[in-house]
Design a protein around this nucleic acid. Structure first.
Lengths: 262, 262
DNA sequence: CGGGCGTTATTTGTATACAATAACGACGCG
DNA sequence: CGCGTCGTTATTGTATACAAATAACGCCCG
């Protein structure tokens, strides 16, 4: 049980030499994204949250230029933590830099969105497959419970969309966690974050919501049966349909040849 | 053909109001990783390159703690660009932060490596499939040419490993480019970078190298035939074998249950 | 009227000083 | 002797000033 730790040795090139033979701080093998980090205290985290909220608020249009100075004033912190936050948002593809390092609000085309959904599907199907082989009874129970909450949100009138989205997010997170593939989780985090921008304009039809709930129920059934193939298949159709309901609100498809000219 | 640009409007909350109706700088839709960026001029880029070289040099051991101050002295720039560089290296999983933000050299377990190869295989098979449908005649020619260089590197005695690695890298890059999926490229970049750390200790058997070349030849054949399934299959076995030859030099596999206790 | 060129102003990049946080070590108490 | 507590030191985080890069503007010339 005693996790093997990796005793460290400070080479201390220019500073004072010092060797420690005791267990230091903590020695993560591979630390993985601070997924559940509660550390929202630091200025850069606040800046991140505020800028993100600003982008999702619709006050700012896709393609618009932003400056670090502006963001610094919006967030109330100096440019240093703003730059940190901006880097994270670039990583999530909500912000974008031109080749001369000017900052813009990302503008997602329909093809960009499809690409994103395709990748997400590929990775999340894999996650579902692995999860089916690894989920504990407790985790399956958690999924059921989350899904009850999701259905409750739908059954309200009007449906509580943000509660739905929250439950949906949690549902998928549990699966990804259960896949026990930290880097998979890391890659997915990047993909899942991005399209949230677009949800501002989204309207959710009750039927879409109910179909989602049915998909989740079937996923739970697949997990309970420990049927990896089933889980993968359901996850695949779940996400692919999600793309199409999403795409209906955007534009028609572009051919690859046209897209290449952009 | 005139790409539609998104004229921007500076809201300029606190500053001077100003509206421009002319095309500004440049308006990237989604800019995508500065893959080919020649911009290695800035201090943060130099810091990145130097730190990376330092990590690969073997002067520093996995699990060892580093401080921004040390890296600042090694690179000769101040902590600000060092922090920037460190963020990039964290992203590539060469560095790692503890939950209290201390910085460590990443320590990859065999399972970490397998996980990484699995993800890479999934994504790169997809890339090969797409590339088979999209590669131009010129690109196929480029692959052939690169592969000639790769074989030349092998046929030297002793084989020129770094030239081999360079050609190999280029070969895979051309395929990923041809897949026309910028976010796929971005995800793969993250995965491909990491294991390079481990190659310091790697010895490449001539037979492994030759098999790689044969795989590449078969890939080219699949591309020339525009056979997406073939390309995907060859890429899959190519990468899976790469993992096993890689793994032979590391340790035996760990069971998932054991791994969970770490 | 339009297009190139130098100047100005805006924006990003870097250095440095300082603040906040976390680890270490010593001390004191049970 | 173990273990919590507190002061010290090490390390990361933030603010600010300044430097470098680059886009905007006005000017001149064709």
């Amino acid at each position: 049980m005693a996790r093997q730790v990796c005793f460290y040795h400070r080479t201390d090139l220019p500073g004072k030499a010092r060797v420690s033979t005791r267990k230091p701080y903590d020695t993560p093998r591979l630390p993985l994204p601070d997924h559940d980090r509660s550390g929202m205290s630091r200025a850069s985290d606040q800046a991140y949250a505020k800028i993100r909220a600003y982008l999702l608020s619709g006050e700012v249009r896709a393609g618009e230029q932003l400056t670090e100075e502006q963001l610094s004033q919006i967030t109330g912190v100096s440019r240093t933590p703003v730059r940190e936050a901006v880097r994270r948002l670039e990583d999530e593809l909500l912000l974008v830099r031109s080749d001369t390092k000017r900052l813009f609000v990302a503008d997602w085309s329909r093809d960009d969105i499809e690409e994103m959904f395709t990748l997400r599907q590929m990775l999340e199907c894999h996650a579902a497959e692995r999860a089916a082989q690894r989920l504990t009874r407790e985790q399956v129970g958690a999924l059921e419970s989350v899904n009850r909450s999701l259905k409750a949100a739908i059954d309200q009138s009007p449906p509580d969309v943000s509660r739905f989205l929250e439950a949906n997010r949690t549902f998928h997170e549990v699966i990804i966690d259960a896949a026990h593939s930290p880097r998979l989780a890391q890659l997915l985090a990047k993909l899942v974050e991005a399209p949230v921008v677009l949800r501002t304009a989204r309207t959710y039809s009750p039927e879409d919501l109910r179909q989602s709930a049915r998909d989740h129920d079937e996923l739970v059934a697949a997990f309970a049966a420990r049927d990896a193939d089933w889980a993968r298949a359901v996850m695949g159709s779940h996400l692919r349909r999600a793309f199409h309901t999403f795409a209906k609100t955007v534009g028609p498809a572009t051919s690859d040849a046209e897209a290449r000219e952009r």
